[in-house]
Amino acid sequence: MKVRLEAVRRTYGTVTALDGVTAGFAAGTLTAIMGPSGSGKSTLLHCAAGLDRPTEGTVVIDGTDLGSLNEHGLTVLRRERIGFVFQAFNLVSALTAEQNVALPLRLAGRPAAPELVRRALAQVGLADRAGHRPSGLSGGEQQRVAIARALITKPAVVFADEPTGQLDTQTSRQVLGMLRRLVDDHAQTMIMVTHDPVTASYADRVIFLEDGRVVDEFTGALTAETVAARMAGTC
């Protein structure tokens, strides 16, 4: 298991966003987390990725218990072992696409070889937009730059919160296809939150959340229809 959650609870004051979630995510798989709005999907992702600390329970990534790390240690772990793609606001607006991609390496004090960065951009089909700032890129392009940045450190896991939430169907399909290939070709471990059955159908496994609990999960040959049917069953 690349990522393991053990009885994770997260409360915000009186609101219980996660209520004792236990789950494991195997290496080289793409997992989708689904559920109604407010069910705790984002909270689960944040806790699993070390962006947020659970109120109770443990999170282990690649053998490291996040609870044992201080803020600096957690930051370094995020930098070295984890990649993120958010729904929006993914890029630093002052930097070019290329500089955004190189950012995690520079923050880690590692040399950011231009070829490496170019290759990462080429991988997401943006070799020719390296010098553009986010304001000069479309939403889909920004999202792909964010993916390139998430992958530049060769992370153990990539987390994505509704990575295609703001993209049209055509672009969504491109981005998802790319993510799928990363899992298949490079055995990348990936966890993503989504609302959309079509998006979820790219995954190896779907976990359903409701009121902060895992209420259902299934694996196997997923299609948009089967996922939608399952959703209708649980909700």
Partner: peptide
Amino acid sequence: REFGLLRAVGATPRQ
């Protein structure tokens, strides 16, 4: 938000 993003992609508070 920008600082949050930087923190998320691995900037330490010191950075």
